[in-house]
Design a protein around this nucleic acid. Structure first.
Lengths: 111, 111
DNA sequence: TATCTACATATAGACAGCCTACATGTAGAC
DNA sequence: GTCTACATGTAGGCTGTCTATATGTAGATA
């Protein structure tokens, strides 16, 4: 998967994976991998800064927890983040529709 | 349309629009707009450098023409570009499949 | 005990590509 | 004379993803 292709869609992925339940960064990476059938390997250097950015914007909130001696920062969707996720979903549908319409235009041409 | 979303898909759009026939930059911009139902307004500062990049890579070739007193640089797909377009199309299908699978995962969760 | 792997977070700096803004020029309409 | 459409191009900004690196715990295994 070309990294550049993810540009602008990372937010949607992260918000989406947090829709069901709060998760910490490491678990988010695993969840993305799992949900994508192994196709998405998002590096930590992408995920952690992105989560902080989303928190700064107000789409996520976080709190520290210690589990088994290890420190985790658990992120949770805010109300604003939940609304944003809806927006991301419809933006995704529009995006795929638009690009798809260009890519699918038959080589034979219109009437 | 969020500009960042186009990242990494510009090549596919440009190659696709040139599949049918050679076009010059200005006409490519109009074709993108038309094929997308008006949704895609790609600025010249994006298109012209991208076309040059694609030519440098070898996916496009170009030649100057003068029509009605105006100079045009007409771009045409090379054989390599045609193969690349096939690759871009399958990459697009994979991309939408992967992102879609993450975004569509039901909030109710698996068994 | 030492070492390795999985778990867990974080930052600095590189990199790439899309964008805004600007520059330049012709043709034709009004 | 001015305005719009046509037509190409570059410089520099911006931003987000990536690579590489740093740090540290827990548990398995030799």
């Amino acid at each position: 998967m070309n990294p550049d292709a993810l540009r602008g869609h990372m937010d949607a992925l992260l918000l989406s994976v947090l829709e069901r339940e709060p998760l910490h960064g490491y678990a988010i990476i695993e969840a993305l991998q799992e949900r994508s059938g192994g196709a998405l390997s998002v590096p930590t250097g992408t995920v952690y800064p992105a989560l902080r950015r989303l928190e700064r914007i107000g789409y996520l909130s976080s709190e520290w927890a210690t589990v088994g001696g290890r420190r985790r920062r658990t992120y949770r969707l805010t109300e604003s983040g939940r609304r944003q996720l809806e927006g991301e979903r419809s933006a995704w549908r529009e995006f795929t529709g638009v690009i798809g319409s260009v890519l699918r235009a038959e080589a034979s041409g219109p009437a």
